[in-house]
Every structure is written in structure tokens, then in C-alpha cells.
């Protein structure tokens, strides 16, 4: 059992209830993996797949790729690159924001700078 596998199976089965193309076999084919592998991932018998496959699964299922990557214990390559460019700044920022409520994080914005006219 794994968070990622449980979540994947739950969402896929919800979709399958309304559309047969979300069977393990058909979904696996569309994202380019073997059905048996996808089934094992859902049951937690295999580690979560690669970032590319997770992004494809998220796209097929209409889910947020960052949320699915997080459930798999991963951070997207794009976010990693952003942090690597300014590691200290972003590490400090994320640590300072970690306990902030969602609404406070959402209010963090870039203001237009006013200068000397």
C-alpha cells in the first residue's frame, strides 16, 4: 500500500465508473506502461513511476501533476531547477512559509514597484 498507489486507484476507479477507457489496461496503454506494472503501482507493490509517467497519468486523469508528484515523494524537475538557481533564497523562503496558513501564502504577491517621479 502507498499514498500514491491508493490515490491513483481511487481516482482511476472514479473515472472508470463513468467511462470504460479508465480501466487499468486502457490507461496503462495511453501512458506507455504495462498494465501489470500499473496494477502493481496501485497496490503499492512497485515504487511510483517516473516524473514523466506521473505527469502523463495526471494529464489523463485530470489531476494536478504537482499533487501527484508530492504523493509519490517527488518534486518536479521544473521546481527543482527554480530552487537550484537560487538555493539559499528559496530554501529560506520555503522554511519561513512552512507554517503560514494557505490564505497568507496566497497573499504573497509581487507588487509593482513605485519609484521617484
Amino acid at each position: 500500500m502507498s499514498d500514491f498507489g491508493d490515490y491513483l486507484r481511487k481516482v482511476r476507479e472514479q473515472r472508470r465508473a463513468g467511462d470504460a477507457k479508465f480501466s487499468v489496461r486502457q490507461l496503462a496503454k495511453r501512458v506507455g506502461v504495462e498494465p501489470s506494472y500499473l496494477s502493481k503501482v496501485e497496490r503499492g507493490q512497485q515504487a511510483p513511476p517516473s516524473e514523466k509517467t506521473i505527469a502523463a497519468l495526471a494529464s489523463e486523469l485530470g489531476e494536478d501533476p504537482d499533487v501527484m508528484l508530492a504523493l509519490a515523494g517527488k518534486v518536479s524537475g521544473e521546481l527543482q531547477a527554480i530552487i537550484r538557481r537560487r538555493p539559499k533564497l528559496f530554501a529560506d523562503l520555503i522554511r519561513q512559509l512552512k507554517d503560514l496558513p494557505d490564505h497568507a501564502v496566497l497573499r504573497l504577491v509581487r507588487e509593482v514597484r513605485d519609484g521617484d517621479w
Partner: peptide, 20 residues
């Protein structure tokens, strides 16, 4: 665009005044 994002290419007066 923010003028600050084009700092290398805009007149210095624009940076002094800030804005977009």
C-alpha cells in the same frame, strides 16, 4: 512588463521611476 525585469535594456530614468 515590470520595468525592473528589463533593467539591462531600459533607460535609467525608467528604473528610477519604477512601474510598468
Amino acid at each position: 512588463r515590470h520595468v525592473d525585469d528589463q533593467a539591462a535594456n531600459v533607460p535609467s530614468q525608467w528604473l528610477q521611476r519604477g512601474g510598468v
